[in-house]
Computed example of a mutant assay.
Amino acid sequence: MAEESDRPGVAVVTGAASGLGAAVAGALAAAGWRVAGFDLRPSPATALGVEVDVTDAAAVAAAVDRVERELGAVGALVTAAGVYEMRPVEEIDDARWSRMMAVNLSGTANACAAVVPRMVARGRGGVVTISSDLGVGGSQGDAHYAASKGAIVGFTRALAVEVEGTGVAVNTVAPGAADTPMLDAGSPWRAADFLATLPVQRLVAPGEIAAAARFLLEAGPAVSGQVLSPNAGATI
């Protein structure tokens, strides 16, 4: 029988209302975690849904306070909230750049800043950020998105070093193009000629990304600062 401290506890998942966040929240709930979902919309499949803007650091901190009051100490964090668009670099104005960085990068940092010190104080916890293989390899028309996701990889590795030896692990999942509503029907990532280049001939399933996140959370503090990239074989 597992020790009480080894059993799943409370997990916060940002972006839990849909897409990858919903898949992660569902996978963790199925594994026994009590999941709190942070999103601008309701997260009905979670034990506690908190409507919060991840770009607002104070609001995120208050949301974490609420989770710990109502569900208990947060032992896991997955930062899945994000936005995506394709745009040639000359069309990326200040507003588009700022929104991409605010949601993807600052949203990740705000959640970590609210949760990680609590984990460090308790001597255990796991964080999984969601970056992208585009943040490593880049792609045409994705400069601002790739910049935000590449920054998440750097942020994650730096945070892993910062908390080294505390019992807290920090890793990132950098998926390839995933079969979520974020990619509309006309997306070039859904085109037959792109899918034909992938060994598995399809987009990454959200459940596969969720499984990668769960694996990293369950691996413990010996696995930290790592990038796991379920990408349908796009990059090997």
Rank of each mutant, 00 (worst) to 15 (best):
G141K: 14
P8A: 00
P44E: 04
L48S: 07
K149F: 02
A210M: 10
F155H: 03
G167W: 15
A232N: 12
W97P: 08
V173E: 02
V163E: 06
Q201E: 14
A169Y: 13
V83C: 09
L159E: 10
L228G: 03
A212R: 07
G138Q: 10
I236P: 01
C112W: 06
R66Q: 11
A114E: 06
S132W: 01
L48H: 12
D179T: 08
I130M: 13
E90M: 09
A62S: 05
A158D: 13
G138E: 10
A95L: 14
A143H: 03
A205H: 06
V78S: 01
A57T: 00
P88Y: 10
M86R: 05
A160L: 10
C112T: 04
N231W: 04
Y84L: 13
E4K: 12
A151Y: 01
V127A: 02
S224V: 00
I236S: 08
V89C: 07
A185M: 06
S139Q: 11
Q140R: 12
E164A: 11
E218A: 10
T156K: 03
A76C: 09
L77T: 03
Q226C: 11
A143K: 02
L216Y: 02
A36R: 07
G75N: 05
T235I: 13
V163Y: 01
P188F: 15
P44W: 00
G37M: 12
A59V: 02
E70Y: 03
D94N: 13
D39S: 13
V200E: 13
L195N: 06
I209Q: 06
S148F: 07
E218Y: 09
A232G: 04
G123E: 15
P175Y: 00
A109E: 15
A174G: 00
L159D: 02
D93G: 06
A211Q: 08
